[in-house]
Design a protein around this nucleic acid. Structure first.
Lengths: 409, 409
DNA sequence: TCAAATATTGCAAGAGTTGAAAAAATAACT
DNA sequence: AGTTATTTTTTCAACTCTTGCAATATTTGA
């Protein structure tokens, strides 16, 4: 069962078992009650009752029958009704708001992209803009017949701590410590009628990649994710759930030191990973500093990508060097978190082949001593959409964990 | 409630609520049913029933009354019966077995220390020796009237993975990968009558320090532990429980790289933390390499301790230098795990003051940029006994989590 | 001695799961 | 065409657990 601090009662049992059945149906497509009973350990009679309640809540529907091959009553198949539950996700970057409202399958019913101008140091205008977008998305959801709005999630950079979801530090926006972005946005949405959460953007991406990989094969209990795009971030997944840690920074690999006497970093420390694999240092190492200064970092990254495709030795060497540093970070991540799988996202995914030689250089010695090193390194499957997808998944998880949060019919 | 994969029923509810009450009684000394009801959220009537069952299982007893001050029926106080449940812990080091059988309070009823000679590469003789010691300890427990043997735990170096508790690698003993030490020992103990587990020794120490600190004040959700004595190890605690990770190595800080181009380590990588704060490098840095070679590492550490007490500049500088490296590791640990508290154990605890200057050197820049850094560094409160204490705590946790594992009367 | 106050326990009601029996629905057989 | 075997699903009584309310127990203060 879920692990609340408080007492348990029969309602908690019901919640747990409803979640058990709903999760099975969601994961294993159309399936019969008998199959669910066999797989979950529940008794047939219980599955009947649980399925009935899920149907009443509109989360599951019967979808025809399927003869089992031999004789006997045919199975009546149950299927998830993804469009029953919708969630809203807002990704906040320095210049834009990306908004999606989608159902449990991730099928979007509303998309928006808005430019915002957030004055340095004052979160209020941005909060108002976010609230405006959420309101539009919520209106779009309400247009859909029978859809239940389960939650809205704001994904943005910076550590998010505690149950209050306050943002410990948003350096790029210059906000004061412990800014209660959720509270500021919620103040504009008095009748939103669903939970509003703030989560770290890299953690969202980590969750999305975890699900993407987990669909194809069994994943280990502890999985780490590192991404680099406009910055370096990451996330840590334990038992399929985001682990934020007490600092809200768990898995944020960008500012771990890998070089004791390395160059100073803007974070105040020295030799951070971000100085080795971040976009500015990486393009600079490939001789593209001037281009980055003139046309912006995106142009420089695009040029680096072009040169890598052409096999430019300077660019290839820069990636190999970054790989060496990344290898050290991977050793630290696996050692400290116990992650048995490390997923690379952002441009690390696309350039994985170019990074591998450097990574191997760092890991070769350890691999020789400990042949089955205990962890795998895999490129991410999702592109930039990972963040929004992951934000939607957080509310999907909440719905699957407590189906009683969705009202009947 | 605890979170098993399977279905939940009313028995699970009972287990959860029994654990809730037992945990409260164990943590908050003698207390009345009313107090328990108020603190846990259970209703008075439920507490009555739950307390009755705990009394029947011998885990709790009534211990007099206490007038509440004003008028009214006095409170009947309930108290944990620590001696009801005993556990056995065996700590395995290269030369010795240290054994303790103790009750829920950690009060020992049996202690033993045995020299063993484990042939390199063959775990069987050591398994036999461990089984012998466990048998003696179990006999001692059976002497105690009314005591229930809840479990036996073997604490030893090396990563312990999966539900099978196999030892992925025991380099010091030269065992093959995935050695099933638990199985080997259990084969000698066909009628032990209690669970037998193998856990990582540093993880045990981490758990013990967590409890020691937590007794005095509220601890954050995620806490990390690093220790150095004969080697460098550590552990990661999430929600008060050991997180082993999928590799079984979570929190093992000894072989995270902090210096990309540092010296090669026996683990195969370069610039590992163990090369900076491990006993051999540390004594060598203080100019005690010859002494270590001649009289052993313990003698060299003792001499280092003496010189530190005298303020020997060479020794002090060595500690400061180690502190710099430790600071880098601490940044990595906090960043990756989200730990808001990092506990230093082994000689790191005793020499904490001497390490602090170096740690501060590394952290100063970060502290300047992020004033409330988000984590605290504290010395451990327990000495070498931490490992055995922690091993006992793992079974204590199991008992508190499922009081129905203890039979009636 | 009596009333007030507080702690604990009994008891019926409500909700959940379970196991066995009954009902439903189809294929195979005669 | 009718019947039987087989498989799936539902119904129903039994049991356990928490809950809320009323009853009981026990002490203090007047």
């Amino acid at each position: 069962m879920t692990t609340p601090a408080g007492p348990a009662d029969t309602a908690a049992v019901r919640r747990h078992n409803l979640a058990l059945v709903l999760r099975y149906v969601a994961a294993h497509g159309p399936c019969a009650r008998t199959e669910i009973a066999g797989a979950t350990g529940l008794v047939h009679a219980s599955v009947t009752g649980l399925a009935t309640e899920l149907i009443e809540r509109g989360l599951v529907r019967e979808v025809g029958s399927a003869a089992t091959g031999g004789r006997g009553r045919p199975r009546r198949l149950l299927q998830l009704v993804p469009e029953r539950v919708m969630a809203i996700a807002v990704q906040v970057t320095l210049e834009r708001l990306e908004v999606t409202a989608a159902d449990l399958d991730g099928t979007a019913v509303h998309r928006a992209s808005a430019v915002h101008r957030a004055p340095f140091g004052d979160p209020e205008p941005l909060a108002a803009a976010i609230a405006r977008e959420i309101k539009l998305a919520a209106d779009a959801v309400r247009e859909v017949d029978g859809a239940y709005l389960s939650g809205a999630v704001i994904a943005m950079a910076g550590p998010v701590t505690g149950p209050g979801h306050t943002i410990a530090a948003a350096i790029d926006f210059g906000w004061p410590a412990q800014t209660d972005l959720r509270g500021l946005v919620a103040a504009h949405l008095p009748d939103l009628g669903c939970p509003l959460d703030v989560v770290n953007d890299a953690n969202c991406a980590a969750l999305a990649e975890y699900h993407a990989h987990g669909a194809a094969r069994e994943l280990p209990d502890t999985v780490a994710y590192i991404k680099a795009d406009t910055g370096v971030g990451g996330g840590l997944l334990i038992g399929g759930r985001i682990h934020t840690g007490s600092t809200g920074l768990a898995g944020e690999a960008g500012h771990i030191p890998i070089d004791l006497d390395g160059p100073p970093c803007a974070c105040g420390a020295r030799g951070c990973l971000a100085l080795a694999i971040g976009p500015e240092p990486l393009t600079a190492a490939a001789g593209l500093a001037d281009l980055a200064a003139r046309d912006g970092i995106d142009a420089a990254l695009a040029e680096l990508d072009r040169r890598l495709a052409l096999g430019d030795p300077h660019a290839v060497a820069a990636l190999a060097d970054a790989g060496r540093s990344l290898g050290a970070a991977i050793l630290a991540i696996s050692g400290l978190t116990g992650a048995a799988e490390i997923i690379l996202g952002g441009y690390l995914a696309g350039w994985c082949d170019r990074l591998t030689p450097g990574i191997d250089t760092t890991l070769a010695g350890r691999r020789a001593v400990a042949p089955h090193l205990g962890f795998a390194i895999t490129p991410g499957l999702l592109g930039p959409a990972a963040t929004l997808t992951g934000a939607l998944l957080t509310t999907r998880e909440a719905t699957l964990a407590d189906p009683t949060s969705v009202p009947p019919v």
